[in-house]
Amino acid sequence: MQSFSYEKAQSVEQATGTTGKFIAGGTTLVDLMKLGVETPTQLVDVTALPLAQVETLPNGGLRIGAMVRNSDLAHHPAVGKDYAVLSEALLSGASPQLRNMATTGGNLLQRTRCPYFRDPSYSNCNKRNPGSGCAAIGGHNRMMAILGTSDACIATHPSDMCVALTALEATIQVEGPKGKRSIAIADFYKLPGTTPNVENALEPGELITYVDLPAPRKASKQVYLKLRDRASYEFALASAAVVAEVSGGHVRAVQIALGGVGTRPWRAHEAEAALTGKPATAAHFRAAAEDALKGAKPSSENGFKVELAKRCIVRAMTMASA
């Protein structure tokens, strides 16, 4: 790890006025600094900022402070009651210790687990060295993405929380040198395209302050289903977050997001369109899942993820319709 200066920000203004890299839980950043992937010369500790509250918004939605720890958010009564998909997603991620450390804001910025990204001895990584190529293509790719990939990058977005937030259509509040702004989560994550180094919509110096959830939709049923090799403490091979309104045997409205398969938290619009207004039957779920994975481009070792993701959608929809 290279040497860096450290300061603790006491206000958002102070934090955004620096040129340093923000650190909160450190579960991604310290890990990557040890690997030599992140090499900040200045760290700004944002854990003391007054952003650790969960509060109800006037519109009935929920405002989650960026410094709220994953474990606290998962067990927050309002989240458990109205946003079960978020609670389930959080509790399916990482380990109890890491969830005690990781923050909401930090988790939004979680980096990929691509082993070639994580090892600087591979000079060819377009995320780390734009234009250098991609070592993952042609390498060990079982865990890589099948949706949203490009010739420049096939790295999977690893988060569970962000998948739930995508299904919930969260809005991310940020504050930077130029002021405050809101970013819909759909616009927050960037596809790799030819610039995998650009992962999100944040401008230099901008700090995530809150995540806003819309008011809970009445009668919606929420499910987070995560499929993986071992029983716990592992990243998803495929996961699905479903927020669905099912009544009279029909899907009235549904939002579906996928994890473990996309280069970003993957909103399955095609599946939603295929399901809305349709009978809640296994056949329709399967047809929608087929639609969701139509654009999948697997690599040599992860073709199974296509079928697995489909089954994940079908099972999650079945659970949400039960």
């Binding site: 450290y6 603790k8 650190i23 450190g26 579960t27 310290v30 890990d31 760290l43 500790d45 854990t47 474990s71 380990s95 109890p96 210790q97 890491l98 005690n100 450390m101």
Partner: peptide
């Protein structure tokens, strides 16, 4: 609260 001390910077 339980945490992983290996990913915790002492100064923090």
């Amino acid at each position: 609260r339980r945490v992983n001390s290996c990913l915790t910077l002492a100064v923090m």
